[in-house]
Design a protein around this nucleic acid. Structure first.
Lengths: 134, 134
DNA sequence: CCCCTTAATGAAAGTCGTTGTCATTTCCAT
DNA sequence: ATGGAAATGACAACGACTTTCATTAAGGGG
């Protein structure tokens, strides 16, 4: 799985991959580092940062920024382009698609002569579980 | 203008306000600080940070995050809710609206039981001027 | 117009997420 | 097995931003 990306199969990468496969919520590099330590599979913080960066580049992980600017990662179910509806409290996320919006974005950009267009779109709210727990 | 927010009218706030009124592009606190220094109206970096934070809270400035996570500010033409089409190279920005998208976001969130929903949406590209200059 | 309280300023130090360095370890092709 | 390249990890460094705190100055009351 990692080898298909020209990467070596190390214990650490396996541990990170196993973890993000289990955790459904968006988690920061530091949180992942702590979770690994807690389960007795310690991986250096630097390595966690490098690993999630690599996996994100390869499209294996989704990255978004929390309100405070911290980057949080999550295993994405689909390789296709999508966005997220994320819980502000627990990080629980739902993948959402909006083809009509993608087209709108393209058109708006083209109308103003902008090229090489990309967009960021994330929805933040409080999930049903966290709402109920209040 | 600043006094209507319960703030004192200081030389520094006037200088920052005058600057953001002239500059149409999104600029970081550090860039604003440097621009002020260059025009001989030096304002402490700390004060620039505090001022843009205050103005942003008051809705007088728009804030977005660059790809590297740095916050950049701009005077917004309309007080109404809007998004931006921003040039990656020079920060030039166009205000855009997408009422259909706002409704889509609301509906998607409601469908999944999420409450207190907010969203971030920015379009990034290369503006006509920067495209031509390449 | 002059105090005098209180907000505002700014230099420097601190915080925090993240990245660079580099010696050591580990993978894996030969 | 083994040599060489890639990966690891402790630590230092970095950069945006915030806090601290002593000093300055705004602006209302007398």
């Amino acid at each position: 799985m990692v080898t298909s990306l020209g990467l070596r199969a190390t214990k650490q990468r396996a541990a990170v991959l196993a973890l993000v496969d289990e955790v459904a919520d968006f988690r920061s590099a530091q949180e992942l580092h702590e979770l690994l330590r807690a389960r007795g599979e310690s991986v250096g913080l630097t390595t966690v940062y490098r690993t999630v960066a690599t996996l994100a580049e390869a499209g294996e992980l989704d990255v978004i920024r929390r309100a405070d600017g911290e980057s949080v990662y999550r295993r994405c179910g689909s390789g296709a382009h999508h966005h997220h509806l994320v819980c502000r409290d627990c990080g629980a996320a739902v993948e959402v698609e909006g083809p009509a919006m993608e087209r709108w974005a393209e058109r708006v950009a083209a109308d103003h002569g902008y090229s090489q267009v990309a967009h960021t779109l994330e929805l933040f709210g409080v999930c049903p579980v966290c709402s109920a727990a209040k």
